[in-house]
């Protein structure tokens, strides 16, 4: 109910602002809506949203998997940490634009280059978070697992992984928002479809209703995925904590 109210307030503010500023710079909600419907009818909206979502899913999964593995290793093995740390600092502070442009130059304007560039941007934050998680592992529980001769796989699943879960959730949460931001830049610079590409086209044609239609539908998708997938996942992970409290 409160969410609906907040949404209505947003639409009202937008409408009033467009009346004040004028249609040329900020079109009113109905104008944007009609463009949105036209794009949806032609199917272009879904093709572009789908392309962007596929890139997000691939780059996110790739970066989480590799980043978590490297972070865990760096947190557990001090040699790995000393070897990896300078690279990590470099990657952490490298601007997204540099990675994307270099990837397109070296690997061509390809899908692989785009996804790799997005993943590389997200990778270091996952590494840093998981390294912290691996450092915080309780040695007392490790000893328990060793004393009771738990097989490696079972110890990892029941002893290690639950301790890392909050860190994985944090990495996923911050990483996902990073990927949402970067994917559009990568598409804008070098892909022939996707939300970022359409926004680029709209920018060049100064087609503000189109620009807003894509921006808002993208924001809508992000909101839905956050509430339907990320938040329930976080709640599930901390189930034992809620009950204990």
């Amino acid at each position: 109910m409160l969410r609906l109210l907040s949404f209505a307030l947003f639409i009202a503010t937008w409408w009033i602002a467009s009346l004040v500023i004028g249609d040329a710079k900020l079109p009113a909600p109905p104008a944007v809506l009609s463009v949105l419907i036209a794009e949806a009818r032609s199917g272009a909206l879904f093709v572009n949203l789908g392309a962007t979502l596929a890139r997000v899913a691939l780059a996110f999964t790739l970066a989480m998997a590799i980043g978590s593995a490297i972070g865990y290793l760096m947190g557990r093995v001090s040699l790995a940490n000393r070897l990896g740390d300078p690279w990590l600092i470099l990657l952490l502070n490298l601007p997204a634009l540099v990675v994307i442009v270099l990837a397109y130059i070296w690997a061509g304007l390809t899908e692989v280059a785009a996804i790799a560039a997005i993943a590389i941007n997200k990778l270091p934050t996952a590494v840093v978070t998981l390294r912290e998680g691996a450092r915080a592992l309780d040695p007392a529980l490790d000893e328990m697992a060793t004393a009771f001769a738990l097989p490696r796989g079972r110890a990892f699943r029941h002893v290690i992984l639950p301790q890392l879960a909050p860190y994985i959730a944090a990495a996923a949460r911050s990483g996902l928002s990073l990927v949402w931001k970067i994917v559009l830049v990568a598409e804008y610079l070098g892909r022939p479809n996707g939300v970022g590409f359409e926004i680029g086209v709209a920018f060049q044609l100064f087609d503000i209703p189109l620009l807003l239609a894509y921006s808002l539908s993208f924001a809508g998708v992000v909101l839905v995925i956050e509430t339907v997938m990320v938040q329930p996942f976080e709640t599930r992970l901390t189930r034992w904590r809620l009950r204990a409290a």
């Binding site: 007392a140 529980l141 000893e143 328990m144 004393a147 009771f148 001769a149 639950p162 034992w240």
Partner: peptide
């Protein structure tokens, strides 16, 4: 030899 150990602190897994 199978070892059973009771540590000073219980060392249970809080999430199980």
């Amino acid at each position: 030899m199978r070892l059973g150990m009771v540590f000073q602190e219980p060392r249970l897994l809080p999430w199980r």
